[in-house]
Simulated assay, not measured.
Amino acid sequence: MEDEPSEFTRRLHAGFGVSASTVVETARRATGEGVRACERIVRGHVNEVYRVRTDSKTFFVRIDRSGDADFAAEAWAMGEARRVHVPVPDVVLVDRARDDEEELPVMVLSALPGRPLADVEAELSPVRLRAVLTDAGRLLATLHSVRTPGVWKPEADGRWNTWDEIRDGVLAERRSERPELRSAGLSESEATVVLELVARCVDEYPWNDPVLCHGDFVPDHIFVDDDLRITGLLDFGMFHGGPPVSDLAYLRLVRPDLNQDGLLAGYGVSAEDREWLRQRDLHAVTHAVGYVAHSVRVGNAVQTAAYVRSLRSLVDDLRQRR
Rank of each mutant, 00 (worst) to 15 (best):
T192H: 13
V170N: 05
L139S: 01
F223I: 06
R167S: 12
I222W: 02
L133Y: 01
A191E: 11
V198R: 01
L129Q: 13
W160M: 02
D226H: 12
L140T: 03
E121K: 11
V170M: 12
A122M: 06
C201G: 06
P206Y: 05
D209I: 00
R174N: 10
H221K: 11
G158Y: 05
D168P: 03
D220Y: 11
L140Y: 05
L195F: 06
S176Q: 13
I222K: 00
E190C: 09
L117R: 01
A184N: 03
S183A: 15
T142C: 08
F217D: 04
D225Y: 05
A118F: 02
V194N: 02
L195N: 12
D209Y: 05
I222G: 08
N161S: 14
V170D: 08
D226V: 05
T162L: 08
T134V: 08
F217T: 03
K153V: 12
D216V: 08
S145T: 11
P149F: 06
R167Q: 08
S189E: 15
L139Y: 03
T192M: 09
S189A: 14
V120R: 09
R147C: 04
R115C: 00
V224G: 01
W160Q: 01
A118S: 14
N161T: 09
L143Q: 04
W160F: 14
R200N: 11
S145H: 06
T192S: 14
L186Y: 02
V120A: 08
T134C: 11
V146R: 09
P149W: 08
R182T: 13
D135A: 11
L181T: 09
C201Q: 15
H144A: 06
E173R: 15
H214R: 07
D157S: 12
N161A: 14
A191M: 07
V194G: 02
G150F: 13
L171W: 07
V198W: 02
V202C: 11
D226A: 15
V170Y: 05
P149Q: 12
F217S: 07
E190F: 12
V151F: 06
V218Y: 00
L129V: 08
E123A: 13
G158S: 07
G169C: 06
D157R: 12
W207M: 12
E121M: 15
L129Y: 07
L181P: 05
E165M: 11
T134D: 03
E204H: 09
S189D: 15
S189K: 14
A136P: 06
C201S: 15
P126E: 12
L124T: 09
D157F: 14
A184R: 03
C201Y: 13
L195I: 06
N161W: 12
